[in-house]
Amino acid sequence: MSNQGFKQEYGTEHYLSTTGAAEYLGMTRQAFKKRNPPKPQVVVGDAPGWTRELLDAWDADFRANSPKPKPRVFKK
């Protein structure tokens, strides 16, 4: 059953852990933590959790506001 089907049937949100969020965004846990992730939407025990929708918005905002890398100049 897809997450969407589960949510519709049971009314349950699906949250991603730090590792899950990093994998979803295509980066390592260390890179995810270094980018100063958003405040977790839930905390279960000591584990923070985020929805995919929040992570998508946060990642888009991060990319839009990140400084663009300077082009590399190669000496001849």
Rank of each mutant, 00 (worst) to 15 (best):
M1W: 13
M1C: 15
N3S: 13
N3L: 13
Q4K: 14
Q4A: 15
F6V: 09
K7R: 15
K7E: 15
Q8A: 15
Q8I: 12
Y10G: 07
Y10E: 06
T12C: 15
E13Y: 13
H14S: 14
H14F: 13
H14Q: 10
Y15A: 02
Y15G: 00
L16M: 12
S17L: 07
T18Q: 01
T19G: 04
A22T: 00
A22V: 00
Y24I: 05
L25F: 05
L25T: 08
G26M: 10
M27G: 06
M27Q: 05
T28R: 09
T28D: 10
R29G: 02
Q30Y: 08
A31E: 12
K33M: 12
R35E: 03
R35Q: 12
R35C: 04
R35T: 04
R35G: 02
P37Q: 04
P38L: 00
P38S: 00
K39A: 06
K39W: 01
K39F: 07
P40K: 00
Q41K: 06
Q41C: 03
Q41W: 01
V42N: 06
V42L: 06
V42P: 06
V43L: 04
G45H: 13
G45Q: 08
D46V: 09
D46P: 02
P48C: 00
G49L: 04
W50Y: 07
T51L: 07
T51Q: 08
R52L: 04
R52C: 09
E53R: 15
E53M: 13
L54F: 01
L54Y: 00
L54V: 02
D56T: 07
D56Y: 05
D56R: 08
A57Q: 15
A57T: 05
W58I: 00
D59A: 13
D59H: 14
A60N: 11
D61G: 05
F62N: 01
F62M: 05
F62D: 02
F62V: 05
R63N: 11
R63P: 01
N65V: 04
S66T: 14
S66V: 07
S66H: 09
P67K: 14
P67E: 13
P67L: 13
P69Y: 02
K70H: 13
P71G: 03
P71H: 03
P71S: 03
R72S: 07
R72L: 15
V73S: 11
V73M: 10
K75W: 13
K75I: 11
K75F: 09
K76H: 09
